[in-house]
Every structure is written in structure tokens, then in C-alpha cells.
Amino acid sequence: MKMKVKGKHAILSLVLLTFGFLIAFSYQHTKTLLFDDQINAEDWEKTFYYRQQLIQFEENNHKLQQEIDQVRLNLLQLENEMAEQLDYMSETVTEKLALQALTGELPIQGTGVFVSLRDHEFVPSKAKIDDYIVHDRHIQMVINELIVAGAEALAINGQRIFSDSHIVCIGPVISVDGNQYPAPFVIEAIGDSETLKESLELSNGIIDLLVNEQIEVEIGKKNQIKMNAKMS
């Protein structure tokens, strides 16, 4: 009887143990679930907040990206404009260099002709010496003729002649812009050598005139004439 009671108690104990365990475990489990839910709610709020922030950041990024694109486009346009301006400037600079060469601010070189004027060596004793030497007007005539014929640059004995140059006779020498040169005078002209030479050699042209005035004239083409820049 006692054993039986004890056995009964043992079984009851076992059952109650299991029952208690189940109840307690379930209780704890439910509590954790509730806690988890709370955490989840908090998490959700946080997630929502961060997501909102992310969206804002992305929008910002998008805006900034658009700005960058716009700026890049502007930059590209500017670069293109600059390239065009550079082209234009290089053209202009080339033109300016050519013009400078023409006006004498830069050295110039090219094909052309030279005319050498020389006093007549034989002067009859009765004759006036003035009739046999080269005068400034001869040189001016040659120069005018050359300019009219299209010479781009002129020089007398290596000195450039410009639009404002003056040539005067000082006794046996002539002065070009203040520098004196004795005979013979070599006038060089850069330009189309063929045209220049032909215009000088026209019948009743300048050469004939000079020869008639007892001046020894020598004329010829040159492939390469160099002139220095104006000295100032």
C-alpha cells in the first residue's frame, strides 16, 4: 500500500513536473514574443526613420547629380567656346604677324627683285655732274613704281622703307630716315618678282627713264630676300 502510494506520488510528481515545465516555458516564451514585438515596433520606427533619411539623401544626391551634370554641360560649352576663340585667336595672331611683318615690326623674307642704281662712271668734263649722279627722286620713282606694282616690303641698302619714310639727297649721299648711304644704292623689294620686274622694265618705264638720265641700272630677281625689323 505504501509502495503504491509512493508510486502514485512519483507519477503525479512526474506529471506535475512536466506540466509545470510546460506552463512556465510557455509563459516565458509568450513574454519573449511580446518583448520581441515591442522591439520590432521600435525597430520598425527606427527603420522608418532611417529609410526616410535615406530617401532624403537620395533625393539630395539626385539633385546634386543633376547640378553636376548641368555644370559639366556648361563646362563643355565653355570649353567649346574657348576652343573656338583659340582658333580665332590663332588666326588673328597669324594675321597680326603677317601685318607686323608688312609694317616692319617683324623681320620679313620672300622672293623679290633688286634694283641697283649707280652713278655714271664716265662724266664728260663739260657736262654738269648733277646730270650723271643718282638723285633722291630717282630712288623715289623706283620705290613708287615698286609699291604700285605690289611690293610688300622695300629696303634701300638693307634699310626698310615704310609709308612714313623719307628719302632726301645730301650731296653725293642720300639719307633714308636719317641714315646716310653712299652710292651705289640697292633697292630691294619683296613681292611677286615676275610682276615687279616686268613693271620696272616696261618700255618708256622707269628703267628707260633712269638710263636716259645717265644712271647705271642693274636689275634682277632674287629667290630669297631678308629684311630686318624696324629699328626703333
Binding site: 506520488h9 510528481s13 506552463i23 516555458f25
Partner: peptide
């Protein structure tokens, strides 16, 4: 004794 075991079970579960 069974109640003791019940308590033990609850404790274990907790």
C-alpha cells in the same frame, strides 16, 4: 512531494 516537483518544473521552465 508532487508540489515540490511542480515548483521544480516551473523553475526549470523559467
Amino acid at each position: 512531494v508532487p508540489f515540490l516537483f511542480l515548483l521544480i518544473g516551473v523553475g526549470l521552465g523559467l
